[in-house]
Design a binder for these strands. Structure first.
Length: 421
RNA sequence: GGGAGAGUGUCCCGAGUGGCAAAGGGGGCGGACUGUAAAUCCGCUGGCUAAGCCUUCGUAGGUUCGAGUCCUACCUCUCCCA
């Protein structure tokens, strides 16, 4: 692709952030001569954002880093409606209280990555509930609704899935794209925002804002989307057995987070290094070129760098060290994820608990049946001993002395310390 | 308001019209091979005090020795007509 004039687009281009953009040349020219204010909107549907969102937060990081002003928009208003894009079912309606708690919880991650403040390129955080909840229905329809064509809205890919499956698309949800379009216009009025960015699934929603501004006689706005994160084998990124890879440590521990990236497929290492880390491109090129098993070194760097960005350098180093101890030295560190097991008041629990009970307590399986199955499959080790009987009693006196806990392993990679209380 | 259809193992898709813990995929998990990779092969994928018992096919009733399957009502959705 041709070289851009602005640092901003050059960085994004070289690192593989650009999937689609409206009038990239115009945006480039603008970014080359003045400070551009750009934003990304985030749902408040959970208490944390996940890996899929991290790519756009990083986008905001680079926006700021190249001399512009990022806005992180909390969807306090739009989350009341629920984005139907590429979903085949209706979202559950969230209460106002829930949305607000979610926003409070989500905020923490951003301040680690972006620099907030009052300066010209300091990031600001806004909530679209501030204007969306005050709208007057008829007024809004007349001022904004008149510019939306239902015919055109129905033609968007984002709602096709729903329509093709003959699933209901409620009028409530149908309004989501109108609200998001209006957000863009409103942010332009309030903060001179001219750029909205997001994942490729947001293209339709973003373009709606660009066109709305145009039709309302407002400023020229720009859209930019990032590629959808998929692994080379075609799977959606960020999903594990337990759900999404959350950025908040209480939902997904730094150790597990580090492990998630340590297990990156070979083919994805360079792509992830460019997108998620801040390492210089020439260094990325060097470590990504490592062949064969040496690529594992690159994966460790990748895991540590991303974990440092999200959880802090110290937590990242600790996760790396914990993993090194477990995988390379075979020792168990007290920093491994830990759960507890009740010693219990019962007489029969005086001496210990069954292997099955301990595995369940580790959280590695969700039921006694699953624990039995895993034992039969030869997948379980307690204190480094292969377990074959789910009814066998493990005695309290067999605790590992250094950690004061049982070391429970499921498979080759998952390990949890279970501490009696 | 009238007519025609749909809702299956709480990850998804999807067979099943009286004997069903319910075919087959995908995904996920475990094992083998490796490098904590990919690909490939094999196994597992409702719960429990476990050769037994309990719960599950939109919801609630009913028929039957026995219901995902038949009947009734209701809910949700889709399409056509008004």
């Amino acid at each position: 692709m041709a070289q851009f004039k602005s640092d901003f687009l050059n960085v994004l281009d070289q690192r593989g952030f650009i999937h689609q953009g409206s009038d990239l040349e115009g945006l480039d020219a603008l970014a080359a001569k003045e400070i551009v204010t750009g934003y990304v909107g985030y749902d408040a549907t959970a208490t944390s954002i996940h890996i899929g969102n991290l790519i756009t937060v990083t986008l905001l990081y680079w926006l700021q880093e190249t001399g512009h002003r990022p806005i992180s928009l909390m969807g306090g208003g739009t989350s009341m409606v629920g984005d139907p894009s590429f979903r085949d079912d209706q979202r559950q309606l969230l209460s106002v209280e829930k949305i607000n708690t979610n926003i409070e919880s989500i905020k923490r991650v951003y301040s680690r990555i972006l620099r907030y403040g009052d300066g010209p390129t300091d990031a600001i955080m806004v909530n679209n509930a501030d204007w969306l909840l005050k709208l007057n229905y008829v007024e809004f329809l007349r001022d904004v609704g008149r510019y939306f064509s239902v015919n055109r809205m129905l033609s968007f890919d984002s709602v096709k899935l729903r329509l093709d499956r003959e699933q209901s698309l409620s009028f409530l949800e149908f309004n989501y794209m109108i609200m998001q379009g209006y957000d863009f216009v409103e942010l332009n009025r309030r903060y001179g925002t001219v750029l909205q960015m997001g994942g490729s699934d947001q293209w339709g929603n973003i373009i709606n804002g660009v066109e709305l501004s145009h039709r309302m006689g407002g400023a020229q706005l720009y859209a930019l989307t990032t590629p959808l994160l998929t692994t080379s084998s075609g799977q959606k990124m960020g999903k594990t057995a337990n759900g999404a890879v959350w950025l908040n440590g209480d939902l997904f521990s730094p150790y597990d987070f580090w492990q998630y990236f340590r297990n990156t497929e070979d083919a994805d290492v360079e792509k992830w290094l460019k997108i998620f880390t801040r390492l210089p491109l020439d260094e990325i090129a060097r470590i990504a070129a490592l062949g064969g098993s040496e690529i594992n070194e690159a994966k460790k760097i990748l895991a540590t760098e991303i974990t440092a960005i999200v959880h802090g350098r110290e937590a990242a180093e600790q996760a790396a060290e914990t993993a090194r101890a477990f995988f390379e030295s075979g020792t168990s560190s007290a920093n491994l994820p830990t759960t507890t097991i009740d010693r219990g008041p019962n007489e029969e629990w005086q001496l210990g608990r069954t292997t099955a009970a301990i595995i369940v307590a580790s959280g590695l399986v969700s039921s006694g049946s699953e624990a039995r199955r895993k034992i039969e499959e030869g997948a379980v080790r307690i204190n480094d001993r292969l377990i074959s009987d789910p009814k066998e009693i493990v005695f309290w006196q067999d605790l590992y002395e250094d950690t004061g806990a049982f070391k429970v392993q499921l498979g080759k990679k998952k390990v949890v310390l279970v501490r009696p209380v």
